[in-house]
Design a protein around this nucleic acid. Structure first.
Lengths: 353, 353
DNA sequence: CCCGCATCTGACAACGTTGTCCAGGCTCTA
DNA sequence: TAGAGCCTGGACAACGTTGTCAGATGCGGG
């Protein structure tokens, strides 16, 4: 008999099997090793009170049968799944990759696995995902909310599911939240442009129903007001997110009756598109973007950004999550992490009036 | 009584609770609605045979208690978890984000959740992760292997756990694998440099124990051999992966007795670092990199790359996974996706001898 | 030689759900 | 009005594991 089994073999096995293929259970292991069920359980879990000889026999049976403990049954019995859920907007976004990874690191350090899903910025999908995770009885949830009403989570909070929101606050419920100083960051970024002589500064950002977008817009307006510059309607473009519309928005504010000499972009995706548009312009236009982007320093000019630290955001949130699970943490808090202005050239261009 | 509960309340609840906080069960719902247990199950699962009136009563009880079905128990009973596992190298790597996302999309289309973990290129950690996923009885596994011996998966394969390897083949077992044409892509990339007049072409890549790295190295050597160019030892640098060492490697091959006039880089991270080094050089050095990178077109010069399609890689793998679960797919296959040479300038620079 | 104690092992129930099967009540027809 | 058949609802076992508790075994001391 060959060591490797053909797919057809496996398929046949699957068909004949009642449930998980026909995976061996502790009972099978016990029978093979000639011991009781509980003794197998003890060996598998490294509990004391088993003779080395017995342990050896059991271990042998386990290896021979390829037994793997069924965690579903274990969870059912014990009540803890040792897994946490992460719901974010889009795993493919370079901002969420590091965030996700840092959450995973903390989970791993606490012996938990990470289940994650992308909401695609759709509140309904967010809820669907979160509830699916709750049905799986994750011990905790890290949520980057898409929606603005999270009352559906009340039963989970009451039941003791640890929950931390990241990047944006929860809606209608009192929960931990870890976010960047979006307002301050944007205000500083825009103020930086103003300090370099700009007065006609444009803003391109996401839909203001998204908390981060709204805060950054607020920061833009605050900086302009602080400088005593009235903002013209044509300078602000909201809710544009796909490259084509961002492109049009940028081109319009660069060509109107009072064209902007600088643009502040509300997130990394917008920034990337605007960089492309500006590269096609004949006159130099200053740019500061929210979120750092890779290779920003190698472009001509380098791209000045307001950077937030995705990894720290994720790590902080995950650490709070596990402190909630410890029982160490009692009061929901709002933690705001500072942003950092990184000057690389594009934000220091003088106005080309 | 306030609508929102304080963390202290919740914590108290958690302490007094025996297991999942004190989550209501179907039994509780049944009691409250004044119906039998199975009737609740029927309502929850949308099975037929329940009067609208009864259904309404049950639904009311569910909402009032905040009941969520316990999927652990369900899985235990039914045998399918409706979740798949994805083990990759590093979620934070811009190559794996889109891959992960596309796997998630397919999972979602098939009603499954995605659990994922990063192996950090450590075979032991890979195995640990995979086995943890198996203990959770995921229906299928998508693995980007770090190790080269996967015989530990034999019991799972036999038990009918669908398994697809991505990006690199499995070791010592016969399993589906979806990968890019690493050899062909690298060979074409290097040939492109040679076609533009280069003869002294350097190669910087990852450890050859990693399949992709070995294949790309093989492609480099093949292209050089096809052109009848003997490769000098100093032109090849392997196993360097952190930016500092990549930098040193690049600087060395640019300054030796027979300095290279062009460099082929073996993956996105290496490429990024080499771009930085080349930006500091006085004479122009040609560059072709494996993997596309964002903004590559906006650099001066644009970066010519051999692009692989991470999303298609992930989608193809996930689709095969679910076809395995259908029973549609019987024979393990090796699927190789083509790469695409994208010329942007850096690869077309003439040698600066 | 027997008792007590410590050490190791196993029987059994329980976790929350779903599948099977049967009971009871209803409607419809003869 | 009685009987057949259908429809709804519920009792019960089972899924694979772990916690509890009691039994078995062996050893040493009285």
């Amino acid at each position: 008999m060959p060591e490797t089994h053909s797919r057809a073999d496996r398929f046949a096995a699957r068909l004949s099997a009642n449930r998980y293929g026909n995976r061996p259970t502790m009972k099978d292991v016990a029978a093979r090793a000639g011991v009781g069920l509980k003794t197998v359980s003890r060996v598998v879990n490294g509990e004391p009170g088993v003779t080395p000889e017995t342990e050896r026999r059991v271990q042998e049976a386990i290896d021979a049968l390829g037994f793997r403990r069924n965690d579903s049954a274990r969870v059912l019995r014990k009540g803890r799944t040792a897994s946490i859920g992460l719901v974010l907007e889009d795993l493919a976004d370079p901002f969420y990759g590091p965030l996700s990874r840092s959450v995973e690191e903390v989970a791993r350090a606490n012996g938990a696995l990470l289940i994650n899903g992308s909401s695609a910025e759709d509140p309904e999908r967010e809820q669907e995902l979160v509830l699916a995770l709750c049905a799986r009885r994750v011990d905790g949830l890290v949520v980057i909310p898409a929606g603005d009403d999270h009352r559906y989570l009340e039963p989970e909070l009451k039941a003791g599911v640890a929950t931390v929101f990241v990047d944006r606050p929860a809606g209608q419920i009192d929960a931990d939240v870890v976010l960047s100083d979006n307002f301050g960051g944007a205000r500083d970024g825009v103020a930086h442009l103003i300090a370099h002589g700009h007065r006609r500064v444009g803003f391109i950002g996401d839909m203001p129903r998204i908390h981060t977008a709204a805060e950054r817009l607020r920061g833009y307006r605050a900086a302009m007001e602080d400088a005593g510059i009235p903002v013209e309607a044509a300078w602000t473009s909201l809710g544009v997110t796909d490259p084509e519309r961002v492109r049009r928005a940028a081109e319009e504010m660069l060509s109107g009756p009072s064209p902007v000499t600088a643009i502040f972009t509300g997130n990394n995706r917008v920034t990337v598109t605007v960089i492309r548009v500006l590269a096609e312009q004949t006159r130099p236009v200053a740019l500061v973007g929210f979120d750092d982007i890779e290779l920003a320093d190698l472009l001509q000019p380098g791209v000045t950004v307001v950077a937030q630290d995705a990894a720290t955001l994720g790590r902080t949130a995950a650490e709070r999550l596990f402190r909630q699970l410890d029982g160490t943490l009692l009061t929901p808090e709002r933690i705001e992490l500072p942003t950092r202005l990184i000057t690389r050239g594009s934000g220091e261009l003088p106005p080309a009036d």
